[in-house]
Design a protein around this nucleic acid. Structure first.
Length: 263
DNA sequence: TCGATCCTGTAG
DNA sequence: CTACAGGATCGA
């Protein structure tokens, strides 16, 4: 599921289940999934926030639970805490009988409890939100000029900007017509400007698509967002030129791109 | 900086 | 069986 648009959709869906009753219990099925969940017992969730791909469940006393969905996680509200799928890895029971459950087939998702005011330390390594005023073209240019690593890897580091993963990084680079392996510091300012615009457009389109899927369920498949222009299209014709989409390994992941129009 | 690693499921 | 999957951290 989750790059930024999908995480935001999960947050929206959780907010729709407000107001929250008190947390009366929690559980997990392996020791690594959740750290300190028991410390949230007795508290009430007062807000659901998002920072990059992290979900923050704010508690009444200022502390918070941080949830990272990793590759396949989903955080949902179950009407009955006693029933759950085999892929549920952790849960919080609420006073009204409902439960917040981490459903995650691959079991890579993580939940952790954090003290009031520990956000700054916890997220010190994260870059700006893509739609925040702090994410400027100059910021992206500075980040790009500072490293020789391939631009796609820079985009996926969550340091120059947060929220892009394997799909949207590829989509943004395609839209900006930039080769994913280009050393970041060698990109011209105009190219970086195109990339800057593309990042916002790609994420923005995915977010409205995710919101649409939420408002009108059934018309769009759950979780999946809009059709990708390059991702997963190896061997298919490029949507912009006469080229053919290729796949190449990058940092242990698959990168999709058109070698003809992404230089 | 790069590969290995965490996990399970699915497709070929 | 192998390859691969929308993430991120860790040790060599």
């Amino acid at each position: 599921m989750p790059e930024l648009p999908e995480v935001e959709a999960v947050a929206c869906k959780l907010r729709a289940a407000e107001p929250w009753c008190r947390i009366v219990g929690c559980g997990q099925f392996r020791p690594t999934t959740m750290q300190g969940g028991g410390r949230a017992i007795g508290q009430r969730i007062v807000a659901v926030d998002r920072r990059g791909k992290h979900l923050l469940l704010r508690l009444g006393n200022g502390c918070f639970l941080r949830v990272h969905l990793k590759m396949t996680g989903n955080l949902t509200v179950a009407q009955d805490a006693r029933m759950h799928a085999s892929t549920v890895r952790a849960w919080f029971a609420l006073d009204d009988g409902r439960a917040i459950v981490l459903d995650d087939p691959r079991a890579l998702g993580r939940i952790s409890f954090h003290e009031k005011g520990s956000e700054d330390g916890l997220f010190a390594g994260l870059g700006p939100e893509p739609f925040d005023a702090a994410f400027t073209l100059d910021h992206l240019v500075r980040a790009a000029k500072a490293t020789k690593k391939p631009i796609k890897l820079l985009l996926m580091e969550q340091k120059a900007v947060v929220g892009l993963g394997n799909i949207y990084a590829a989509e943004a680079l395609f839209q900006a017509a930039i080769h994913p392996a280009r050393p970041a510091h060698r990109l011209s300012r105009p190219k970086l400007e195109a990339l800057y615009t593309a990042i916002r457009e790609v994420l923005g389109a995915a977010m409205s698509s995710a919101a649409m899927a939420y408002e009108r369920p059934g018309e769009f498949s759950e979780g999946e967002s809009f059709p990708a222009a390059v991702y997963g299209r190896e061997g298919a014709p490029c949507l912009r030129c006469a080229g053919t989409v290729r796949r190449m390994p990058q940092g242990g992941r698959s990168t999709y791109y058109c070698p003809k129009c992404q230089k």
